[in-house]
Design a protein around this nucleic acid. Structure first.
Lengths: 145, 145
DNA sequence: GGATTATAGTTGACAAAAGCAACTTTATTT
DNA sequence: AAATAAAGTTGCTTTTGTCAACTATAATCC
């Protein structure tokens, strides 16, 4: 029955919500919230610059909320603004040197923490885990998610 | 390299955070928050009753926060309290008839919404998806997650 | 068995995270 | 040129979550 499949998938979602929750716990001790970290992450992988709009669409953020986060980032000199050529309303945002450093620190911590939690796994299991993850991504890519 | 595996796993986590986020969006239109829904869910699968402490451990909630949520639930007559035999400090909590009904509604909506998002998938893909999910659960069960 | 310590849950005060709507400025459409 | 739309900001509010102090009961330990 289709409902059973869905129920199982929802069960996995509940389970994985907890997994992600545990992995995210350590953000609580850092200077960045989860959302701020995601913004930093996106800035890092987009060295060509991003606009506020890009973030709003990518991370589904409220524009007022985002605006304030970016203001903070600016105050802390984590980002740099560059006005867009033909549109004076928006800016391209980049990580500054300080920002790159901060992100790198953040990223490393998160990497280490994940590594530690997964340390009981043998290499073979880790490879299997990643295969499953890629399988899920591939299947879900056919939906509207 | 181990770091590469970890990086891939973290990448999946970011991806799946979005998936869960999309699936959870519809809670915004209901009378229950995500946390409240999780509490209702747990109450539903534990007809033998649960104490506040159980929730705190299971869902990692602050006890003050939980206390207030449960007060609300009581006011709405969604739950019933029964004092524990040999401990006057705690209560066993159950869904009331009203609560069961409310949960059932909630559950059905969530089921339908998930079903809709996954509707492009053929049965075979859904089975494969669930296999991957079970694979992940099984592997992660060997860690401290 | 009485003092001490621990646990369950409540309450008050507060902070962080997020959402909403009105607004300004610049672009686009008609 | 006027009307409409879009990008981002600001003020205000709500929701969500945290922390510490407190009450009442239970468990532990001389």
């Amino acid at each position: 029955m289709k409902e059973d499949y869905i129920a199982q998938i929802r069960s996995f979602n509940r389970f994985y919500t907890m997994v992600i929750g545990i992995l995210d716990k350590n953000y609580l001790n850092t200077e960045f919230s989860l959302t701020e970290s995601r913004i930093m992450y996106e800035l890092n992988i987009h060295p060509e610059g991003m606009t506020a709009r890009d973030f709003i669409e990518l991370l589904h953020l409220d524009k007022g909320y985002l605006s304030r986060i970016l203001q903070q980032f600016e105050k802390k000199k984590l980002i740099e603004k560059k006005s867009v050529a033909h549109d004076k309303r928006s800016y391209l945002l980049y990580l500054s040197q300080t920002g790159k450093q901060a992100f790198s620190q953040l990223n490393e911590n998160s990497q280490l923490q994940t590594e530690e939690l997964l340390s009981p796994l043998k290499e073979k299991q880790m490879i299997k885990l990643i295969e499953h993850m890629n399988g899920i991504r591939q299947i879900l890519s056919q939906t509207n998610i």
